[in-house]
Amino acid sequence: MSFDIDLDHRIGDRRIMLQCRSDAGLVALYAPSGAGKTSILNMVAGIITPDQGRIAVAGETLFDSEAGIDLPPERRRAGYIFQDGRLFPHMRVRANLLYGHHGEPPMPFESVLGFLGIGHLLDRWPATLSGGEAQRVAIGRALLSGPNFLLMDEPLSSLDPSRREDILSVIERMKHDLAMPILYVSHDRAEVERLADRIIPL
């Protein structure tokens, strides 16, 4: 079972509920903006604690309100790729990539560089990268942290259309090469239909 999620959470007067058991490689949560998709990713990553429920990914229980399990984010081994990249502005690309580098990454450093085509960016500062470059580095940083699964929060939305195809094909190759569960969030129907093995509308 790649994803076994059953959660219930209230933010203000909004209730976010999700039930999802799936063995698909890439599960996409598809919903218009503002439906709480990012909140769900944050709950899986351990950034938000759900009111109740259970989250297990790739056979590991990350959260279980009944059993009192709530792993902190740093122990969940989630490769979280954010909408806005979130590279550390005070570190060069190399230091960004190596920030979470411990454990056993699914790909060695050199292969990640080659796979994402970012080898020439190592000495640059994040502020000097284009949107597409920054998103590639963010993906590389997540991969090198040795994740058990990936969370992707609209990774294409901050890119201009010409760069989207570029990152889309990177994600397709990741899905194919890494055999790692991916929880993908988007409001773009075409994007989701192209990538997902299973689509869950919210």
């Binding site: 984010p73 954010f82 806005d84 550390f88 502005p89």
Partner: peptide, 27 residues
């Protein structure tokens, strides 16, 4: 300090102290 950067560091495996020393303090 952009708190979201600190959260990103946590998801990359850094505990609270490491986040403080490597992200919060330098920023």
């Amino acid at each position: 300090i952009d708190h979201r950067l600190e959260l990103a560091a946590r998801t990359l495996g850094a505990g609270r102290w490491r986040v403080f020393l490597t992200i919060s303090l330098p920023l």
